[in-house]
């Protein structure tokens, strides 16, 4: 089973959320998701300033064999995007929880965090479908 750091929260659709400060959160896709998708070839990110609702499609991660939508786990405004992914999409494979982050959001509704899974919950979710 791929790893899922315990300090992060996870969406069922395989995004992770890291708390930066009170209302700012960093978002990426899980190790499990990047492994399923395979070698990334292109990442399409939202625009800085873009307003998102939770569950909105906000990015596309594209590998050789699949293109998958990324859904925003939280509502809010995009404040920063990981521009290095433009030239180095492989960072999402190499370091999904670090250099492979996708974007940072200024959240408007902290209660949405409660809907997300813990690392244990996320691992359990994937063990069902993993055989």
């Amino acid at each position: 089973m791929s790893n899922a750091p315990s300090h992060l929260k996870y969406a069922q659709s395989h995004e992770w959320v890291e708390v930066i400060d009170d209302d700012t959160y960093r978002i990426g896709i899980s190790d499990h998701a990047q492994a399923l998708l395979g070698d990334m070839v292109f990442i399409e990110l939202p625009e800085v300033g873009q307003a998102l609702n939770a569950h909105d499609e906000c990015a596309v991660v594209e590998s050789v064999k699949a293109a998958s939508d990324v859904y925003s786990p939280l509502s809010g405004e995009v404040v920063e995007i990981n521009e290095t992914l433009e030239d180095s999409p492989e960072l999402v494979n190499r370091d999904p929880y670090g250099d492979g982050w996708l974007f940072t959001i200024k959240a408007t509704d902290r209660s949405e965090l409660d809907e997300l899974l813990s690392a244990d919950g996320y691992i359990e979710l994937n063990s069902d479908s993993d055989d």
Partner: peptide, 10 residues
């Protein structure tokens, strides 16, 4: 031989 389709796309 097998082709590098990751390189083809990147």
């Amino acid at each position: 031989r097998r082709l590098d389709d990751v390189r083809a796309a990147r």
